[in-house]
Design a protein around this nucleic acid. Sequence first.
RNA 1: UGGGGUGUCGUCAAGCGGUAAGACACGGGUCUUUGGAACCCGCAUUCGGAGGUUCGAAUCCUCCCACCCCAGCCA
Length: 563
Amino acid sequence: MSLDAAPSSHFIKEIILEDLKTGKYQGRVHTRFPPEPNGYLHIGHAKSICLNFGLAKEFGGLCNLRFDDTNPTKEEVEYVESIKEDVRWLGFSWDDREFYTSNYFKNLFDFAVQLIIKGKAYVCDLTADEVRAYRGTLTEPGKESPYRRRTVEENLDLFSRMRAGEFPEGSRTLRAKIDMAHPNINMRDPIMYRILKASHHRTGERWCIYPSYDYAHGQSDSLEGITHSICTLEFEDHRPLYDWFLDALGIHHPQQIEFARLNLTYTVMSKRKLLKLVQEGYVSGWDDPRMPTISGLRRRGYTPEALRNFCERIGVAKSNSVVDIALLEHCLREDLNRRAQRVMAVLRPLKVVIDNYPAALVEELPAVNNPEDRSRGTRNVPFSKILYIEKDDFREDPPKKFYRLAPGREVRLRYGYFITCVGVIKDEKTGEIRELHCTYDPETRGGDSPDGRKVKATLHWVSAAQAVEAEIRLFDHLFLKPVPEDVEEGDFTQVLNPNSLVTLTGCKIEPGLAKAEPGMLFQFERQGYFSLDPVVSREGRQAFNRSVPLKDSWAKIEKSKKE
RNA sequence: UGGGGUGUCGUCAAGCGGUAAGACACGGGUCUUUGGAACCCGCAUUCGGAGGUUCGAAUCCUCCCACCCCAGCCA
């Protein structure tokens, strides 16, 4: 059984298969992942990464990593580094094909000169406001710029002076000469170059004119020999323009294919919204474990395998959709179930004294490391007279279907003994349960009863004397609503989940966990999957993040009883 | 009222004229030293709507409806 879902077919593969059959690109498949280094990658990007790198791999082709850095006012090296780390972590390699649109600034400039010579581009002196006014509206055609009829010579001269820095920022642009009455607004003489006196993170002060996305993207694809240029739906309207430049230049012509971006329930996905959460302090940073960023998911304890599997399962299509976050969680559980080391940890400790257990005795009892993989063997956990169990595992007045510990009831301590509750000690004033007194059956060592006696529940526990204390962070959905943007008033911050992070201190964990390190995958039995938080943890004060809880059918019963 | 898209189960999503895959979710059950996992069963007589073509339509045609994207010198 392989963890990765069988690659499913989708419309992009069909297009590629067809192109392969007809020999459209001499049997080549070459894709690219083109992030703009102006923010951190999120799970929506993961979909695109898996698609582009996955397609290349499946068809024996290549996928380039290309930073689309045409806007120096928004881009930074910090983002470049984080993007590379995230793509690598996801399990993909671009070898030496790390490119930057800024590598092509000279090529793009030369292409622009060619277009000017062909009479297909001109320097326009209209201001930004005027350009907008001249563009017309969705339903009305635009007007031609008064500068549209400049001669080739004049355009050439002006364009080279734009490059030389002779004109102030925003004073002129280079525009494609297409059709101001075109029903597609993108075709109404789009801007190819703007003057930006900004320092670029790669080219420094070398340029003061920068190409627009529309002008740069197709030509960059062409220069790299890309065959299939995959992007999201909102660029569908730009495809005629993408094609227009390539045709006008008569160079290698990749085909642009659009697919629907990923949306997930109970979270937001746009860089703008994510940035707002970070900047306004709703989360601790881009890598907050509640964020849908790749760095956040990684810190939370997600695995690349789970993410890749998820991306495979959601499919690739063109309809706007919102994927249930339960599928993401399912993919994580599925992966972690096979891999995670089982361990016992008590999140909300309740003291238990085993009355008939020798006070001085400490036994080392073997516990299975992973029932899904017996080759992982066993470890020993200490058992003694004073233990902690989970508060939730005891009810003085147990409701129907509650199988756990209650007065007079016998349950099993996992890998330990059968115990029976014989006493409850409460705080005189508050009535709060302070500790439980139990007796154990020495014959049930390890958790088996020689007489075949059954018990309805098995509890996890930790021996008090040997327990290590830790902080445990429980995460829930960041938002209360499946679609956070769907609010009557205000914005998505109105429906932030106040309980998306619950920090528990004084948790009692199995002594072996003291050696836990970030990146190690654990299942705290009967609770969920956890891993050490690499940021918050400190020497002597470990903090574990709950990556995802285990399915809990008891919680479901309780919930349905309340409703 | 311009242009470009999309509409198949609660949510994704196959389907490409031969009689509605699969997954998640949900419900029920078996098993269980995790109320986990695993396993079994159930879950769209119907494909946005209405007509039409055809022996046969989710698939073809016509009209209609709904939703998404576009008027950055952002990508």
